[in-house]
Simulated scan of single mutants.
Amino acid sequence: MAQEYIFWPMIVMALLTFIPLGMMPIKRIQSALRGETTPDDYKLGESARVPADVSLPNRNYMSTLEVPVLFHVLSLALYATNRVNAVFLSLAWAYVVLRIGHSIIHLTYNRVMHRLVPFAASNFVLIVMWVMFALSLLRFGSN
């Protein structure tokens, strides 16, 4: 299998990160134009005056940068050790699809129990990937 295939789920994950990043200034400017917030409301993050719909893209953006860092690191490790195979690639795509589902729910109707399912499932997939990677290192050593 071409090792470079692992970069496609990484690219899609990066694109997912750019969506809330692009939404943040739009929501903040709209809020300022409505008189709901001022620049001081963002001086130390977000003040209590910032409406939930304005805070949401920022929180989603942070979420796409937290645990997914471990996904990106693992993907690069798989590439560097020549361990990208159909199983890892399928799990990588499963992780990304679950994160997309989480973000769609988070950025739209935001029901916590609904977004918990893809969030928890994505974390489970990532843990499985890391365990499999570690076992492959133990079992086969370096290539």
Rank of each mutant, 00 (worst) to 15 (best):
Met24Lys: 11
Tyr5Asn: 12
Met113Gln: 12
Glu36Phe: 15
Trp93Ile: 09
Leu16Lys: 04
Ile104Glu: 05
Val73Ser: 01
Leu15Ser: 02
Phe7Asn: 06
Phe133Ser: 03
Arg115Met: 02
Trp8Thr: 14
Arg83Gly: 06
Val97Lys: 09
Glu46Asn: 05
Ile100Arg: 05
Met62Phe: 05
Ala86Thr: 13
Gln3Ile: 02
Ala94Asp: 03
Leu15Ala: 15
Gln30Gly: 09
Ile6Ala: 04
Gln30Val: 06
Leu21Met: 14
Leu89Gln: 08
Leu21Ala: 15
Leu44Arg: 11
Arg99Gly: 01
Asn85Cys: 03
Val50Lys: 08
Phe140Ala: 06
Met10Asp: 01
Tyr79Trp: 15
Ser103Lys: 08
Asn143Arg: 04
Ala32Lys: 13
Glu4Gly: 09
Val125Cys: 02
Val69Arg: 04
Ala32Cys: 06
Ala77Leu: 15
Ile29Lys: 14
Lys43His: 07
Leu70Trp: 09
Met129Ile: 14
Arg111Glu: 11
Trp8Met: 10
Leu91Val: 04
Asp40Glu: 15
Arg59Asn: 08
His102Thr: 07
Arg83Ala: 08
Thr37Tyr: 08
Arg28Val: 01
Ala52Lys: 12
Phe133Val: 01
Pro25Trp: 09
Thr108Asp: 04
Glu4Leu: 14
Ala92Asp: 07
Trp130Asn: 03
Phe7Ile: 12
Leu116His: 09
Ala14Phe: 15
His72Leu: 11
Ala14Tyr: 10
Tyr109Leu: 06
Ala94Gly: 11
Ser90Thr: 15
Leu116Asp: 01
Val131Cys: 11
Phe119Gly: 05
Leu76His: 14
Leu89Asp: 04
Leu74Cys: 05
His114Ile: 15
Val84Cys: 01
Val128Pro: 01
Leu76Thr: 14
Ser47Asn: 12
Thr81Lys: 08
Ser122Met: 01
Lys43Val: 05
Val96Glu: 00
Ala77Pro: 00
Tyr42Ile: 12
Ile6Asp: 01
Pro51Lys: 07
Ile100Tyr: 04
Leu135Ser: 07
Asn110Met: 12
Arg28Asp: 03
Ile29Ala: 08
His72Asn: 00
Leu21Trp: 09
Leu76Asp: 12
His102Trp: 07
Met23His: 03
Ser103Pro: 00
Ser75His: 01
Pro51Met: 12
Ile104Ala: 11
Leu138Lys: 01
Met62Thr: 03
Met24Cys: 10
Glu66Phe: 02
Met10Trp: 05
His106Asn: 05
Leu78Trp: 13
Val96Pro: 00
Ile105Leu: 13
Glu66His: 06
Thr64Leu: 11
Ile104Val: 15
Pro25Gly: 11
Asn123Ser: 13
Val73His: 04
Val73Gly: 02
Asn143Leu: 05
Ile105Gly: 00
Val67Ser: 14
Glu4Arg: 06
Leu126Lys: 07
Ser136Ala: 13
Gly141Asn: 06
Thr38Gly: 12
Pro51Ser: 02
Arg99Leu: 07
Leu76Ser: 13
Tyr61Asp: 04
Leu89His: 05
Thr38Asn: 03
Gly141Lys: 06
Ala14His: 13
Pro39Tyr: 02
Val96Ala: 02
Pro20Cys: 07
Thr38Val: 09
Asn58Cys: 04
Phe18Trp: 03
Asn110Gln: 13
Leu44Asn: 15
Gln30Asp: 10
Ala121Cys: 11
Leu16Cys: 12
Pro25Phe: 12
Pro118Trp: 10
His114Tyr: 13
Ala134His: 03
Ile19Gly: 10
Val125Trp: 05
Gly101Asn: 08
